[in-house]
Simulated assay, not measured.
Amino acid sequence: MPEQVAALMFTLTSFSGQSFTDLRSAYCRFVDGDTNLELARFELTDTQPSTAVLLSMLKRHGPQWWEVRTIGEFHDFHAPKKLVPAAARHVQMP
């Protein structure tokens, strides 16, 4: 990853406008590709009736060290770029 990349934000949006609570058994998970170990799982069906969520963030804290933060912040947008201001606030947090 280039050094100028400070953070990676993981988001999920519903382009159709259907809320996550309208979906049956909706979830998102992060899996380690080498070990197949599930690192995080977000159950979405029993959450807020929203169409977008900031799931988590990888934030750089040095050349070789990244911090993983769970966010779980819900919004009502259909396009990921609408989440940029909210994501930027999280990147600025210590």
Rank of each mutant, 00 (worst) to 15 (best):
L12A: 09
T47Y: 06
E43V: 12
A52W: 00
M57W: 06
V53A: 01
N36C: 07
Q92T: 07
E73A: 11
L58K: 04
A87Y: 01
S14F: 08
H75T: 02
V31W: 04
E43H: 13
L58C: 05
K81L: 06
V91Y: 05
F20L: 01
H61E: 03
M93T: 02
S25L: 15
S25H: 15
M9R: 03
S14M: 13
G33D: 05
L8Y: 15
T45N: 09
D76K: 13
S16D: 15
D22I: 03
K81D: 10
E67P: 04
P94M: 14
Q64E: 13
T47S: 13
A40Y: 03
D76F: 13
R89P: 01
R69W: 07
L8A: 11
F74G: 03
A86Y: 03
F42L: 07
T21A: 06
R69K: 09
C28M: 13
S14I: 07
M57R: 12
P63C: 03
Q18D: 15
T13D: 08
Y27D: 14
A88M: 11
L23A: 14
C28K: 02
L54R: 01
K59Y: 05
L83E: 01
P63F: 04
R29F: 10
E38A: 03
Q64P: 12
C28W: 10
I71W: 00
M93P: 01
T70R: 14
A88G: 08
Q18G: 13
T70C: 07
F20H: 04
G33E: 08
R69M: 08
K81H: 14
L83Q: 05
G33L: 09
Q4R: 14
H61F: 03
E73L: 14
F74A: 06
M9V: 15
L58H: 08
V84N: 05
A6G: 09
